[in-house]
Design a protein around this nucleic acid. Sequence first.
DNA 1: ACCTGAACACCGTTCAAGT
DNA 2: ACCTGAACACCGTTCAAGT
Lengths: 193, 193
Amino acid sequence: MRYRRGDIVERALGILDQHGLPDLSMRRIATELGLQPSALYHHFASKQELLAAVADELLDRGARAERDQEEWDTSVITLSHELRDAMLAYRDGAELVATVQAFGLGGRTPVTRLTAAVESAGFDAAFARAAAMTVLHFVFGHVSDEQTHRQANSAGAIDADPLVRADTASFDLGLSLILEGIRQRQPDSAKID
Amino acid sequence: MRYRRGDIVERALGILDQHGLPDLSMRRIATELGLQPSALYHHFASKQELLAAVADELLDRGARAERDQEEWDTSVITLSHELRDAMLAYRDGAELVATVQAFGLGGRTPVTRLTAAVESAGFDAAFARAAAMTVLHFVFGHVSDEQTHRQANSAGAIDADPLVRADTASFDLGLSLILEGIRQRQPDSAKID
DNA sequence: ACCTGAACACCGTTCAAGT
DNA sequence: ACCTGAACACCGTTCAAGT
């Protein structure tokens, strides 16, 4: 069989969701595709590069179309929830994204969109980027914790639904703290708009 | 030779700092101590447990003594900088702490101390914990980014000092956003104290 | 209590060679 | 362009046995 990058990423996402990040090895991906491990190196220079492509695809699948005419803070909230939902949609999704981030790889789409939302409130580019990174660090960290603790509790017979609701509440609370901090610095001229 | 847990953690910290997290293998630790790899399993049930002990030791070394009689926000700022400095003091320190966190392991000392600081401002325990986690996620994420980009730039002949200063400024900015968000929710009764 | 020796079941990556 | 086959240099973990 002959594959393209997209086919390999697709299969990797399947392994991730069904068996988790520890089982997402080059050899496992190759075997499931009926390939020799070395064949993957025709498509990706390294495992890190492959994982970055998988993480980007995972995040892309959670991204909705641009909705303009929104308040900047509504945009930030929406984008943050899209990121959270995208990572929660796949087993170990947050850990994968964190790993790719630690490599210094991964697409810049999330930070770009968050930065644009903050800039639309009238902030300069440097502040907007720092504020966007603060939101992003919170989102990645919170969702990572959520998935870690959900995995720990999935052994028992605990109903997951109340946990998800509690996680969502603390997610919204943490996010609102950062948003309020940003609002406090908003230039007066922009508040009128 | 006969070793105790502390000796093994000590040697692991040395390998981490000199060779980085990817080289921190059970076999490498054992070899450097003149042991068989299997000997380590007398002291630690798994590599994850060993890494958790290493991360806790790393964070402990950056912790100063309790200083009472401080404003709550000064305490949060000081604790955050101590955590940052502790992770920056060792190569791949932030990535190690993040890995241990993703296992659901690692000591609760940082979150406990941050929560106590926020509670001292008059907040209830649930809010204080959520606020402390928001700070913690920001600190871990920011320092992780710092170390990732510093490693990327250390190949070139760039002077690191201006970068460190810029990182510190954006760290302080992000932290101040969260603190301002917390202040906005402060109960009126507590503001007088 | 602490360690050895040997084994099991894996890894990521390279590279010449095939079609 | 895409893949095979074989090899290299590693992993974490288990377990009987030693002292």
